[in-house]
């Protein structure tokens, strides 16, 4: 049996689906962040799969950049969550509604 690129793409699509569902279902801001990481990783899997099947290393280069952006995003996002927690003593996104009118 031969593993074609579709197997990796379907797995990646499934992980993206789980990530989208997680962002919309979960009420804890930190878990929403983790679901975003899951979606970034599914995009990474697609990039690496195409890079490997085409024999071109540029896809893996972009995974490197995605990881950089993910690290920066996690650091700033968690700092924002800590700042909000200091103010409101919660990380539940239903109660963080200061921008809602």
């Amino acid at each position: 049996m031969n593993i074609t690129i579709e197997y990796y793409l379907i797995l990646s699509a499934f992980m993206f689906f789980v990530g989208v569902a997680g962002v919309l279902i979960r009420r804890n801001a930190i878990v929403v962040f983790m679901s975003i990481e899951l979606m970034l990783n599914s995009a990474n899997l697609t990039l690496v799969a195409f890079s490997s099947y085409l024999g071109n290393s540029i896809g893996q280069l972009f995974v490197f950049f995605v990881m950089t952006v993910a690290a920066a995003e996690a650091a700033v996002g968690l700092a924002i969550i800590i700042a909000i927690f200091r103010n409101k003593l919660t990380v539940n996104i239903d109660e963080i509604n200061i921008l809602k009118w």
Binding site: I30, N44, V48, S52, A71, A75, F85
Partner: peptide, 30 residues
């Protein structure tokens, strides 16, 4: 399995090592 050795190692070091430790640290802090 996709022969991407460098990305596999980076995944473990950066994601599982650095980013998730940051997440767990904030979770246990809050």
């Amino acid at each position: 399995t996709l022969n991407a050795q460098f990305i596999a190692v980076t995944q473990i070091i950066v994601y599982a090592g650095a980013i998730m430790v940051l997440f767990l640290f904030v979770l246990m802090l809050l």
